[in-house]
Simulated assay, not measured.
Amino acid sequence: MAARVAFQGERGAYGEMAALQYFPGAILMPLKSFADVFEAAERKKVAYAVIPVENSIEGSVGEVYDLLLLTKLKAVGEVYHRVHHCLIANRGVKISEIKSVYSHPQALGQCRGYLRRKKLEPLMAYDTAGAVKMIKDQKLKGAAAIASRRAAELYGMEVLAEGIEDRKNNYTRFLVLAPGADRRVGKDYKTSIMFSVKHVPGALFGILGEFALRRLNLTKIESRPTKETPWEYNFYVDFEGHQGNRAVKQVLSAVRSKTSYLKVLGSYKKASF
């Protein structure tokens, strides 16, 4: 039976493409917000949620990290999706008629140089494919959207330019979340954790040193405001290894004693480009 998978955005969004990349043949559920995607998986309306956590050009998706802190869902997989941005408009519209461009803030940021060179005004939308749908529904002639070629094809729109991202090595990393953890243990795994540090000198240094002592490679570290006390932060860390392995068990035990809060998001097989 095909898995039911939720993603944020309309049909044709990069989240849908990432979900199909990881789950070919899945039954997909498009949802408007990231919070809606988390809720659908938490209430088991779907088996999995596929959510973007970072882009190779624009960096992390802050809202998602805040939701990861609160959810009981577990990270069970990841996927790197190559992003090819297109400038999309209604059929018959010429590129010289375009004055403004709608898209998700991350997509606008990834095409910042192109928009500046073309003197196009960037306008925010909640989703890339949703921007295409909005331009079609409202029959806008002086506006375009930044989205995938798939979105243009799904909504019967015209691609005016392709590959408009500022860097061609443009990838978005998505996490696959599920109500239950992945119990498999093997090589080429990664573990994700979140923690807050005690307010003593060298606290973060001491935590990171535990990974170095066990030769566990950190692949990402990100800080996010706690939103409770000004200038206090939660840290998100990805590192190589499975939580079922001896060295990872040791480091988690050591880190737990040095943090005021520790959450293990899950262990999952590393994705490849």
Rank of each mutant, 00 (worst) to 15 (best):
L120G: 06
M124R: 12
C86R: 01
G92Y: 05
S103K: 02
V132M: 00
Y126S: 15
P105W: 04
L73A: 09
E121P: 13
E121C: 14
R117M: 12
G77N: 10
I98T: 01
G92V: 07
R91E: 10
G77L: 06
V132A: 11
I88E: 05
S100A: 14
R112V: 11
Y114C: 04
Y80A: 03
K118Y: 15
G77A: 10
K72F: 10
H81F: 12
S103I: 08
L87H: 08
G109R: 07
H81C: 09
R116V: 05
K119R: 15
L73S: 08
V93R: 04
G109L: 09
V132T: 00
Y80V: 02
P122W: 00
L115K: 09
K72W: 09
P122N: 03
S100T: 13
L115Y: 08
N90S: 13
H84K: 14
A129N: 07
E78T: 08
L108R: 08
H85I: 06
H84D: 14
E78I: 02
A131N: 06
L108T: 10
S103A: 15
A131S: 12
L123D: 06
H81I: 12
K94H: 11
H81P: 01
K99C: 03
T71F: 03
C86Y: 04
V83L: 03
S103C: 11
K99H: 10
A89Y: 03
K118E: 14
A89C: 00
R91P: 02
K118S: 08
V76I: 11
E97D: 14
K99W: 00
P122Y: 01
G92W: 02
S100R: 15
Q106L: 15
L115I: 05
R82K: 15
L123V: 15
T128M: 00
G77V: 08
E78Y: 05
H81Q: 13
H85N: 15
I98P: 04
A125D: 10
H84T: 13
Y80K: 08
T128L: 03
A131H: 01
V76A: 07
R117V: 12
G130H: 04
K119H: 14
T71W: 05
H104F: 12
P105K: 05
H104V: 07
T71R: 02
S96M: 09
E78S: 07
R116E: 07
G92N: 09
D127P: 07
R117P: 01
G92E: 10
H104W: 04
G77Y: 06
V101C: 10
R82V: 05
S96K: 13
K99A: 06
A125C: 12
E78G: 08
S96A: 15
Y102N: 01
K119E: 13
G113P: 00
T71L: 04
A129T: 09
D127V: 06
V101Q: 03
D127E: 09
T128V: 00
L87Q: 02
D127K: 07
A125K: 04
A107M: 11
Y102M: 03
M124C: 11
I95F: 02
L115N: 03
K72N: 14
Y80P: 01
R116T: 03
V76F: 06
C86N: 07
L120V: 07
R116K: 15
V83K: 05
L115T: 03
V76T: 04
H85T: 11
I88P: 02
L123Y: 01
N90W: 13
C111E: 09
Q106D: 10
A131W: 00
M124T: 11
S103P: 04
K94F: 03
K72H: 14
E97Q: 15
Y126Q: 13
V93S: 07
K74D: 06
S103Q: 02
